[in-house]
Design a protein around this nucleic acid. Structure first.
Lengths: 335, 335
DNA sequence: CTGAAAGCGCTTACAG
DNA sequence: CTGAAAGCGCTTACAG
């Protein structure tokens, strides 16, 4: 049978107030302390956290709304958040929306009902409904991955990353490039990376690129890549992919055709997933620090919860990683 | 300002009971219903779920205690659980222990305090403290991945998988094999898979194997593999790895030495991670259905929560996946 | 140092 | 159909 604070008080022969004081570190005599301690150990009493929270009118929970759990970036980010939050005495509540936008909205209201202290939303697309919900629930929210002027945001420097990648590819001598991107609805991945790449392209005379679109899944990328590989004439000498996952798909499509990387075609990604280092050849990519981004998001949301000042926008850096998937064109003057 | 049910009642000119009835689908006149509906919409009222749970004396939350979030198996399993639970009206609360055993114990008590309805523990090692905690908290618990007679368990058929893998490798003609396993503290991965493999080995005259141990991380596997590759004389013709991650490490170590797979050495894994299909050559492995295991665990814990009967032990099947990482030995009679 | 009482925001018999 | 009252299990001034 579940014990309540009243039971403990009765058994120990003291008042509920005293037991509560024991639980919350108030001052009491050694004798009472020992008595209560003993009874609690005996009975295995566990305080009801609802009653506690009802009084406290808040929790020490932070919510994370994520589109999926089974992706490298999401799981790394969540792990970072979790560790930082735990160190600060907060608990993380993860809501998985299975890439369903309207579920993000529901989750916002749900978390509010649960008196969560703050929310980090792993954003892909920001709609009016998002903004409205954030306003209505009246608890601190941070967007991670996308930015909006009305909400505190943390983003990666996707534009600069795209620019760097463009410069790199061009510097290796590539002049006929295929850019395999994603929907522009995702501003960070679909627009910014591409814009950065295009900016680099514009600076290089004689360079041209074809722009293609793929889904986020590897299977979609295989299909999109097959299309490029089979139908583009002349072949581009490099395919710049908007994500590592897409790059993996391209590599697979190439393998299936006996097209060698990087000898026959070069491939690059964005993200810096662990796999990109294991595969052969290693993938040249831009690495984002997902785990530390998660930690940062945790620190930021805590600041907001505690009413401390916080910049509206934080832009995260990245690391360019050169591996073996890009050919130095001078070795193949035929292109 | 946060509204309570009393505020809504006052504004709508009805009693708290009536508002509560509205919220919980009790019967009330159309006129009152409309009035209350209107006020709630106006004010953006969100009921306090603590007060609700305090009365209800339970939640519709299920806890998952996981050693880490950023692994393929964990994230897949959690995703499966999450989807199944949501379909059944439960919410999933994930606790990440960062591979810290004592945190699993803490988590058990924590979740009890939060009046979670049931818990699925992604088990690696089961200690006395685990058993004691499960007993004390008095709420349903399921072990996933390891078994214990006192607790409902779901496991993979690791022994049979190991046996199949052994048979397969031997059938390809390999006679000098290295088995790269993990600590025996992990009964499922460290003991059962190996035992299964050994059973197959015993059935084949003239076959022998060396047994080695690695950590779970790829970096540890690279090191362990380097040791085998550099020091074993004669070279084994195949390395059977206890996990895909370890196999990946072995492949990396081989690549670094210019040792070809499968021409120079064969490699196999266990797990069926997505990457194993993308890499080149594809890894021969045993695929566990993590996501459906998660769904099953969800259904099982719900049964327990609802006091329905449930088998103490469920053993999950697997799928043997033959790819290109194992050499048919007849082509290389020199071994 | 300790206890009685009020209150956190809901729900639920029980009357009417 | 609707309301007054008690109670869920805690915490927290306020007295003593």
């Amino acid at each position: 049978m579940k014990k309540t604070i009243a039971d403990i008080a009765k058994i120990a022969g003291v008042s509920k107030s005293t037991v509560s004081r024991y639980l919350n570190g108030g001052s009491l005599s050694d004798a009472t302390r020992r008595k209560i301690e003993h009874v609690i150990k005996e009975t295995g009493y566990i305080p009801n956290s609802f009653a506690q929270s009802l009084k406290a009118k808040k929790t020490s929970m932070i919510g994370a709304i994520v589109p999926r759990l089974d992706s490298f970036s999401a799981s790394q980010t969540v792990t970072g958040m979790d560790e930082e939050l735990r160190d600060s005495g907060y608990q993380l509540l993860i809501i998985n929306t299975s890439q369903n936008l309207s579920r993000e909205i529901e989750a916002l209201y749900d978390l509010a009902r649960q008196k969560i202290s703050g929310i980090v939303l792993f954003a892909t697309q920001i709609t009016e409904a998002h903004l409205k919900a954030v306003k209505e629930i009246g608890i601190p929210v941070i967007f991670l991955g996308q930015q909006h002027q009305d909400v505190h945001s943390i983003i990666y420097n996707d534009y600069a990353a795209g620019y760097d990648m463009g410069r790199y590819i061009l510097a290796q001598g590539h002049r006929n490039i295929a850019y395999l991107g994603v929907t522009e609805k995702d501003v960070a991945v679909g627009v910014q990376r591409k814009r950065g790449f295009q900016a680099a392209l514009k600076e290089q005379a004689g360079a041209k690129a074809g722009f293609y679109e793929s889904g986020f899944k590897m299977s979609a990328a295989v299909k999109a890549a097959s299309d490029i590989l089979d139908n583009c004439d002349p072949h581009p000498s490099a395919i710049v992919c908007a994500t590592d996952n897409i790059a993996l798909g391209v590599m697979k499509a190439a393998h299936m055709r006996g097209i060698r990387i990087p000898e026959d075609i070069s491939v690059t990604g964005f993200g810096g997933y662990d796999v990109t280092e294991v595969i052969h050849p290693g993938l040249t990519t831009v690495k984002y620090g997902y785990e530390s981004a998660g930690r940062l998001a945790a620190r930021h949301i805590i600041k907001l919860v505690q009413d401390e000042p916080l910049d509206a926008l934080t832009t995260l850096s990245y690391e360019f990683i050169e591996r073996e998937s890009v050919d130095k064109m001078e070795r193949h003057p035929l292109y």
